[in-house]
């Protein structure tokens, strides 16, 4: 994604209209991303959506490459979700809890992230999965894109966290593939 309409550049200058356009454009994807966290209820999810965009817009002036906006936004959303879940599941003050206060600065991404990976690679990864619960879950959530992880858990009659774990496992495979392709280009 470059910057169609110059929205990201305008948002960098503090243009409220551009903020709104970006919110409308990317909110559905952020909601969808958060629907993979089956243990987050709708109210918590909505808070994270708000927090994600607020943090992104407050820091957008630091973004030098408009093409990085989309993955950057998603990384913020994922960090916020993880932090929210960590807070909920532990009473102790842990390193993870500390982390929650500083995640608005997104982990640095390698320059080579600009590498466009054909979506067919991901489809191929899905095809290569053995028939079974992981493949079924991935297809329902990422390919069909209609049901939330909660709804998939109900439909398949399994625990909510089992669905999130299956999705996380597949994300790790995709990440490995991405790492290998980026690094292969540098060796």
């Amino acid at each position: 994604m470059k910057d169609p309409g110059g929205q990201i550049e305008a948002a960098r200058r503090g243009d409220e209209g551009a903020f709104r356009a970006l919110y409308e454009r990317f909110r559905p994807a952020v909601v969808r991303l958060l629907q993979a966290f089956a243990t987050l209820d709708e109210s918590a999810r909505e808070d994270i959506v708000q927090d994600t965009f607020a943090r992104a817009f407050k820091s957008i002036h630091q973004l030098t490459n408009p093409a990085a906006f989309e993955p950057w936004l998603y990384a913020i959303a994922r960090n916020r979700a993880r932090s929210a879940l960590t807070k909920r599941t532990t009473e102790e003050r842990t390193v993870s809890e500390f982390s929650s206060g500083s995640v608005d600065s997104v982990p640095p991404l390698p320059e080579s992230l600009a590498l466009e990976v054909d979506i067919s690679i991901i489809r191929e990864l899905i095809d290569r999965l053995p028939e079974g619960p992981e493949k079924q879950t991935v297809q329902l959530f990422y390919v069909d894109g209609q049901l939330s992880a909660r709804e998939i858990a109900e439909q398949l009659g399994v625990g909510k966290s089992a669905i999130t774990m299956r999705l996380e496992r597949f994300r790790a495979r995709v990440k490995r593939e991405l790492v290998l392709r980026i690094l292969a280009a540098r060796v």
Partner: peptide
């Protein structure tokens, strides 16, 4: 956390 956003995209 690296590449999280790229993977999600």
């Amino acid at each position: 956390p690296e590449l999280d956003g790229a993977v999600d995209r």
